[in-house]
Design a binder for these strands. Structure first.
Lengths: 142, 142
DNA sequence: GCTTGACCTTACCATAGTGGGAAGGTCCAT
DNA sequence: ATGGACCTTCCCACTATGGTAAGGTCAAGC
């Protein structure tokens, strides 16, 4: 199977398949005599695995760990459980952060009359907001 | 005021102050004869504004818009209201996405006995998950 | 056999926001 | 004058993804 077919079959772009290989997440694909990568059913299965895990917000490091557990027929489900639970915690922290932002913003928006007049509590707050003096917390990514 | 003092006073690192200037978010700072940037109270105020807006999850483009509205004494609060409301929508979409992930993962984690045995519904799901065949939705960032 | 188009290969660039560091200039206190 | 704490610019790294360009390959149709 060519990379394009594997891409269609897995829902992972050819671009990303090569990238995953380059970072070591995937083992180097078998090459045919013409240099083309050759994929089989197992590879497509792994690609689907990665795609699904990405959709659940796991990052590459976590996926590498999950993938190696997945390949190991003797893994302990405890390990998988741990990775997944840890990820839920991260997601929930992120949700809480976002909710905090929404709360603050909603309050401000509700106080702003939103018409042609220039006075606006949203800008007043941004300009004079309570300042902790601490460096801005580094943004978390999915 | 040197950039370091402005950084301390605003909570924005010197590094980021220079970056904001380089991207045009901030106007080029006044330079002293030795080439050092020189900041005043207004600048610190703008830096705090940016810092606070970043903390609310606005991206640079949105902050640029908010900042120009903030500088404009004749702005219509309607415009600010629009930007802020739009941002709330984005945040809420992001929250919904994350919640969906948590829901799925929680279900899987609850089904996994998490002991020494190798069978694990989390991995089974990742490996055989329902496949839409659609390319993976591009990850949204805060 | 030749052309054409669809595919493959590698390699480089961009994104957004932040941190890190090097190499060199400046200022101030001792 | 020496040292340390600043400042300057410039370049690199990160994540995960997309884009593009230059060139090789294959298969179908003529």
């Amino acid at each position: 199977m060519n990379i394009g077919e594997a891409a269609k079959a897995s829902g992972v772009t050819a671009k990303m398949i090569r990238y995953y290989e380059s970072t070591g997440l995937l083992r180097p694909a078998v090459r045919r005599s013409n240099g083309y990568r050759d994929y089989g059913a197992v590879d497509v299965h792994e690609l689907r695995f990665i795609r699904r895990a990405r959709g659940l917000g796991f990052d590459m490091a976590e996926i590498a760990e999950l993938l190696s557990l997945w390949r190991d027929r003797d893994r302990a489900s405890r390990d998988v459980h741990r990775v997944a639970s840890g990820h839920i915690d991260v997601l929930q922290t992120r949700i809480a952060e976002l909710k905090g932002m929404v709360d603050t913003l909603s309050t401000l928006v509700a106080c702003c009359h939103g018409d042609g007049r220039p006075d606006c509590p949203i800008l007043s707050d941004l300009g004079g907001g309570i300042d902790t003096g601490q460096p801005l917390e580094r943004a978390k990514r999915r």
